[in-house]
Design a protein around this nucleic acid. Structure first.
Lengths: 203, 203
DNA sequence: CCTCACTATGTAACTTCTGACATGTCAACT
DNA sequence: AGTTGACATGTCAGAAGTTACATAGTGAGG
């Protein structure tokens, strides 16, 4: 244990963000800046991080031997670093992937619904009507992305970017769920009476 | 604070947890311990907190004048405190409720799907098959809760606990979404070929 | 009699995440 | 000539959240 290098990779328990970055790097080498762009979509629909969190995390991953970096002259005062996942990093990612996750989701809009009766019904109805609208637009956008991906064969599990498609599918399901729920809740608050769930309302 | 009392409530920007606790307290006075139990369900499906986070937050809410507390002799070495929301607290909650939330959800299981191609397909298929199973059981449980609530008239927006029903409805939608997605993803990984979304698979 | 679970409240150390501060180049537009 | 936006990397303070430590009464079951 004392003499062998790369020993860290066995004992270091990475953070969730670390594994997220590792997942991004399996799609090819990237700089911290590029990773910051890539966590926006489609990963960003279910996991986000700012650059201020990404740069230190990349340093930790490098220290653990899970990623390698090569430096080039950058546009700013510092060198530009391109990171790539190592064999140890890939092994760590693989091990983490098959552990069933336990974390509960957090949704502020659902939390607000919990206190819906404390607020002005009209204002709350407007809030959820707006949410329903927004989810319709987002859903249309996701559907287009999905169509593009299918045309590129990304819906095949063997495709290296199949994960992007899988995440997008969850995004579509989520937006549909939110849309149905928001429509129902808005109808309840607008009419002030119990509305059967799933029954279409005149919209 | 200098001349006008309750001045704090206008300037203090509460944390999300603070508003969650305020929402719980609109259902009636409670101790920190009881609030810890109540964040488990149905609120816990979309927002959780440990007692170690709740007690300090209650102290902050009390300092801001958003909650009041009365002390009784407790079983342990310290006095038991029962909290109730004040007029200022209710006003703050009302103001917060109508602000459209922006926070993105976080889902570890979806993040793992993003890297699905890096892991052993059989192990990943098992992971999502298991998730589909679990969501079926959870859904059945939620449906029973919903039935009970409807019997109690909690599906009426005028009912003081309507929020519990609204949150549960979102829980049902979410579990359905997760179930459909997990079934599809498991089928993809098991067969190794593109499976059309929504097409029922032999299960 | 002992152990276990429930009631009940708190603190301390640590990790994770956000928002602001800080620097500097290059290309396009005005 | 000046401004805006993209590229590119970092730090720091503080908020939010988790895990573990600490204490103590009551009642049920073995």
């Amino acid at each position: 244990m004392a003499a062998v290098e790369g020993d860290d990779s066995a004992t270091t328990a990475g953070s969730t963000l670390g594994y997220a970055l590792l997942s991004l790097l399996t799609r090819g080498p990237a700089t911290g800046y590029q990773l910051t762009q890539q966590v926006k979509a489609p990963l960003g629909h279910f996991w986000t991080a700012r650059h201020s969190q990404i740069y230190p995390e990349l340093a930790r991953l490098a220290a653990a031997g899970w990623v390698d970096s090569v430096e080039q002259a950058g546009p700013g005062p510092r060198a530009k670093k391109t990171y790539a996942v190592t064999a140890a990093g890939l092994a760590a990612l693989r091990a983490w992937l098959v552990i069933p996750p336990t974390a509960q989701p957090r949704s502020e809009i659902t939390l607000k619904a919990y206190a819906a009766t404390s607020a002005d019904p009209a204002a709350m109805a407007a809030l959820y009507a707006d949410l329903a609208d927004r989810s319709t637009r987002v859903l249309a956008e996701y559907q287009q992305d999905a169509e593009r991906m299918r045309a590129a064969g990304q819906d095949e599990p063997a495709h290296p970017r199949f994960g992007n498609y899988a995440v997008l599918m969850m995004g579509i399901e989520s937006q549909r769920a939110v849309h149905r729920w928001a429509c129902w809740l808005a109808a309840c608050l607008r009419t002030g009476r119990a509305v059967a769930y799933g029954e279409p309302t005149a919209d």
